[in-house]
């Protein structure tokens, strides 16, 4: 009897410690990656000033001496992301409202499955599809020399942000207490008034979080943007010009750089910039998600 209990206790103890170990290991590896990123990235600033790096207007990493200004890349990323947000946020939120509130049972199931399917398409596949359909279309419609533009990237990325936005915003709408809706209907509100005046405001923090997470996904996206935005590292003037993003720069150049060179360190420094942007976005989303009602 007592032996059985001590055995069980021992088992519990071992399992508990194993789980603790797994947790510690994951934290350890994250720290390791983070330290490595900082070490390699910050090394750049022994030779290049932070302001010249962040605000420099030209990125010619293999000229002699290299010019390592990432402003065009930052603006490229921001422009593409901004465009994607403009497209995906209204459509995504409207879609979430439709699924949560309006769609009859069957349509709802089909739409939700469709959204999940969209989320499951690997980004390289989406990029490929974009390259052969969207790019020629943009070229033709706007009568451009090339369809590899910020706009193409934005449209493509909007498709990638959409599943995140729709599913999280839908959850947020769905978790608004039914009693609000009943109260509004009982006062004679129309369905649309109820959605607009009650449900959307009540779900607003969840919807904002959805938007932030969608944008976070877009900022970090690499493959598809690299395939269809044209990758020219100049400060973009319009949506119809080719741009290059932070992510695409790292992906495209990491193979051709010499370990330990300024270019190599600069790519890691770009990694730090990306990390900071993603971190800020995720923390903001988290704040919205866990915001206490006043």
């Amino acid at each position: 009897m007592t032996k059985k209990i001590t055995l069980r206790k021992l088992k519990e103890f071992i399992i508990e410690k194993l789980i603790l170990l797994c947790g510690l290991a994951s934290i350890f590896f994250v720290m390791l990656i983070f330290i490595f990123l900082l070490k390699e990235g910050l090394a750049l600033f022994k030779t290049v000033k932070v302001s010249n790096f962040l605000l420099g207007k030209s990125w010619y990493p293999i000229s002699e001496p290299p010019e390592l200004g990432i402003l065009p890349l930052i603006l490229g990323s921001l422009l593409v992301t901004f465009g994607a947000a403009i497209i995906s946020v209204p459509i995504g939120v409207a879609c979430a409202v439709y699924i949560a509130e309006i769609a009859p049972g069957k349509v709802k199931e089909v739409l939700k499955a469709g959204i999940e399917l969209l989320a499951a398409i690997p980004s390289v596949v989406l990029g490929f599809i974009g390259m052969v359909t969207l790019v020629p279309w943009v070229k033709k419609v706007f009568n451009l020399p090339t369809g590899l533009t910020a706009l193409s990237g934005s449209i493509m990325l909007a498709f990638m942000a959409m599943p995140t936005i729709v599913s999280i915003a839908e959850d947020a709408l769905y978790s608004v207490p039914r009693s609000y809706k009943e109260g509004a209907f009982a006062l004679g509100a129309t369905h649309w008034q109820t959605i607009w005046r009650l449900l959307l405001p009540a779900a607003s923090s969840g919807i904002l979080a959805a938007v932030m997470l969608g944008i976070g996904r877009v900022i970090g996206e690499t493959m598809a943007v690299m395939m269809i935005t044209g990758n020219s590292a100049v400060i973009p003037q319009t949506f119809l010009a080719p741009v290059r993003t932070l992510t695409a720069t790292i992906a495209a150049e990491m193979g051709e750089t010499v370990v330990g060179s300024e270019h190599y360190f600069a790519l890691f420094a770009i990694g730090i910039v990306l990390f900071i942007i993603s971190f800020v976005i995720n923390v903001t989303a988290d704040l919205f998600l866990h915001r206490k009602p006043k």
Partner: peptide, 15 residues
């Protein structure tokens, strides 16, 4: 529904 209002079992003021 404007003329015939309803008060529910659980008070449900709007947020």
């Amino acid at each position: 529904r404007k003329k015939v209002g309803m008060v529910f079992q659980r008070p449900n003021p709007f947020p």
